[in-house]
Design a protein around this nucleic acid. Structure first.
Lengths: 164, 164
DNA sequence: GTGGGTGCAAAGTGTTTGCAAGTGT
DNA sequence: ACACTTGCAAACACTTTGCACCCAC
């Protein structure tokens, strides 16, 4: 299966991710505070990549009392649960991707012109990666592919619609 | 071609990379100072990944006058030339990989147990990536794959030789 | 009630930059 | 000579943390 998936995540799907995280918290004996809930609701109601700063802003729209510190203290929990992945696109700040619950092996194409990010999956590549890793004496735990690309649009028309 | 390449880079090869960088500097109308030369010599005489701090330390062994600022000012030139690649392994600091002159498409397997990093190449994967990228309306400029894995060694013997 | 959680502000850390002096071309 | 480079230290930007108070369980 190859292709970008741009359809909105259904309510059921995102609730499943959220449920899984609540279970994760509970299993670890951690507490469910209103601030954490605001952050969790925010994370699992979007499929957009976000930064710590954006997460703070969005979460504050749900609960004004959320602080930057709590956001930074919650992010490690999210990544530890495996439901959110930390990503580095070469910027100063980290990006977080909440789409790993439904698509644990997806990858990214980053357009150097318009900074659009498209996600894709490929079973063929996954299989090759697994083979290679095994042949070199390891067993694959997780993988990430980052492809830097140019818009065909830019090449054809000199600029692309998303360019700021 | 799949496999780690661990054989030392020949003197000729590393000199070629260095020559190419000197040409890059000259083409841009930049100057060749003794500090820059110490940094360049350091970078192109190793195939190890390094951090800014390590590069500073090693360069100072060649020229005591190299400062941290000059290292940080030279790194962007190195990456801009395409001969060195900035990499993020999820640590606080960036790593730099000087092996892109000879193997521009190589990728990394990072062992979560012993932190060993193995490089590999795969033409099959490259071809698939190119196809996928093109099908999604982009043209591939560069790519990087990062595989997190576990040592078979660890699984078999409970620990692995490189574990610190 | 208690141990984890929170906000605030200060501290930390890797990286960048202003400035005056130095130097390759 | 001129413009690019340098070292130093201060400045930055993002992230982490100490502390006193708070609250979920």
């Amino acid at each position: 299966m190859v292709g970008a998936y741009t359809a909105p995540v259904s309510v059921e799907e995102s609730n499943i991710a959220k449920e899984r995280f609540l279970e994760f918290i509970s299993t670890k004996g951690l507490r469910l505070t209103s601030q954490r809930m605001a952050i969790i609701d925010t994370v699992f109601s979007t499929q957009e990549h976000f930064t710590a700063e954006q997460l703070l802003e969005w979460s504050r729209q749900r609960d004004q009392s959320v602080s930057r510190a709590t956001v930074y203290r919650t992010l490690p929990l999210l990544t530890e649960s495996g439901l959110v992945r930390e990503m580095d696109f070469g910027k100063d700040y980290k990006h977080y991707d909440p789409n790993y619950a439904e698509h644990p092996n997806h990858n990214h194409i980053i357009c150097q012109d318009c900074e659009r990010i498209v996600e894709f999956e490929s079973e063929k590549i996954e299989k090759l990666e697994d083979e290679i890793t095994h042949n070199l004496g390891f067993s694959l735990k997780s993988q990430r592919i980052q492809i830097n690309a140019n818009c065909e649009e830019l090449k054809r028309m000199g600029s692309c619609r998303n360019k700021t």
